[in-house]
């Protein structure tokens, strides 16, 4: 882990941690799931409102590290308005960004999610960053629980 700490804790990431977007519960979610990272006790609940194959609204609750919180916040921004195919494509790209060094990435697809790219240098933290995405996938697949183990 030779990477500079400031690559990981970028100011904008810390800002998402302090003031997460869509940190709310939905009144009438169509999909929802809870995610756990048993290793560090991170826990999130994710709710989605999907109709006509589009994510109309998304909200999350829970507690966890700055990485997992900011990642969840960024996720909600990214998937709002996306189709389920687009959402899954983002999941795959995000996963690739965190697990395959030197992979060629679709920067346009990732958008703001790219600010978590530095996590790849911190193997113990990848699960924190990916928790929200596993939870999203579980919700979309109609499963109610996701864990990173």
């Amino acid at each position: 882990m030779a990477s500079d700490l400031s690559d990981l804790y970028q100011e904008i990431l810390l800002e998402h941690n302090r003031r997460p977007r869509n940190f709310k519960t939905l009144d009438d979610p169509t999909h929802q799931a809870d995610g756990f990272n048993p290793l560090c006790g991170d826990q999130i609940s994710l709710q989605l409102k999907v109709g006509d194959d589009k994510v109309h609204d998304v909200g999350f609750q829970g507690h966890g590290s700055a990485i997992s919180r900011a990642s969840a916040s960024l996720l909600t921004q990214a998937v709002k308005g996306a189709t389920s195919d687009e959402t899954m494509a983002m999941f795959d790209e995000f996963h690739k960004m965190l697990t395959e060094p030197d992979a060629e990435l679709d920067i346009d697809l990732l958008g703001d999610l790219e600010m978590l790219a530095g996590v790849i240098a911190y193997p113990t933290r990848i699960k924190c960053a990916i928790l929200a995405w596993h939870t999203l996938k579980a919700a979309m697949d109609g499963e109610n629980v996701a864990t990173t183990e």
Binding site: M1, C40, G41, I67
Partner: peptide, 22 residues
């Protein structure tokens, strides 16, 4: 101000091994 896991990462970057968690 900071989650234990984030503290652990910062400490590790300073060469300090501690345990974070339950």
């Amino acid at each position: 101000a900071a989650h234990p896991h984030d503290i652990g990462t910062i400490l590790d970057s300073e060469g300090i091994a501690v345990r974070t968690g339950h």
